[in-house]
Design a protein around this nucleic acid. Structure first.
Length: 219
DNA sequence: AAAACGGGGGC
DNA sequence: GCCCCAGTTTT
């Protein structure tokens, strides 16, 4: 039973592993693999801050915030107004402040002030969608998952690794197709590739190491 | 499925 | 000035 399925997948997706290996090799010097787990709560908060916001702003604002509060208990004590001021510099700072405080209170009241290590529980927190929940699972708890953002979604479709309409479909498709040992690198590498080469508009295809294998599908 | 939330930085 | 940005929630 297993053999038939594996054979089918290998035949249908012959190019997928070469593409992924090519991208990983190409970007091996420009991203840092996560070697140790970070505090899951800090991962959660900085991930909420990062939504639709550039990395540089995210890092600056997160560092400033964690100087003031870095645990659910400390965060829940913060008046919303105070948190909003701390979050200025990241976009959507009013929404994000509400979400962070509400999530922290839920952690205190329902999880003893600790982060749950279950995807479904994380998804119940305000401000947490599939992407954020998966990031926490991977970078907070070291569990295998594929966080899919706009870069991963766009590039997976352009390359022809998947043909999907939503990031959620992309996540499920990639989990079926990509061997688990590539999951962590896949996310980091595709984000980097999306920022530098395979940009949303005017991609630099001549500089892309995977151009020969690319389907160049438009989204 | 589409709109709303939104300030900051690059060009 | 105009456009984009490691999404999520609401309509």
């Amino acid at each position: 039973m297993n053999i038939r399925i594996i054979t089918q997948n290998n035949t249908a997706n012959k190019q997928i592993l070469p593409i992924i290996r090519t991208l990983i090799k190409f970007h091996k010097d420009s991203y840092t693999p996560v070697s140790r787990q970070a505090d899951p709560y800090k991962v959660l908060v900085s991930c909420i801050i990062s939504q639709r916001t550039r990395d540089e702003q995210t890092d600056k604002v997160s560092a400033r915030l964690f100087n003031v509060a870095s645990t659910p208990a400390e965060m829940a004590e913060l008046p919303v107004r105070r948190l909003e001021k701390l979050l200025v510099g990241a976009g959507f700072y009013r929404t994000k402040a509400r979400h962070i405080i509400a999530a922290s209170k839920i952690l205190l009241e329902q999880h003893g002030g600790k982060m749950p290590d279950e995807f479904d529980e994380l998804m119940k927190l305000p401000g947490v969608g599939r992407k954020t929940a998966n990031i926490v699972m991977v970078f907070g708890f070291g569990r295998p998952a594929i966080p899919v953002d706009t870069h991963v979604h766009r590039i997976s479709n352009r390359l022809g690794i998947v043909r999907t309409k939503t990031p959620e479909e992309t996540e499920f498709a990639l989990i079926k197709i990509v061997p688990r040992r590539y999951w962590l690198a896949l996310n980091a590498v595709m984000v980097r590739h999306g920022q530098t080469i395979c940009r949303p508009v005017s991609p630099k295809c001549p500089e892309c190491p995977a151009e020969r294998m690319c389907m160049k599908r438009n989204l």
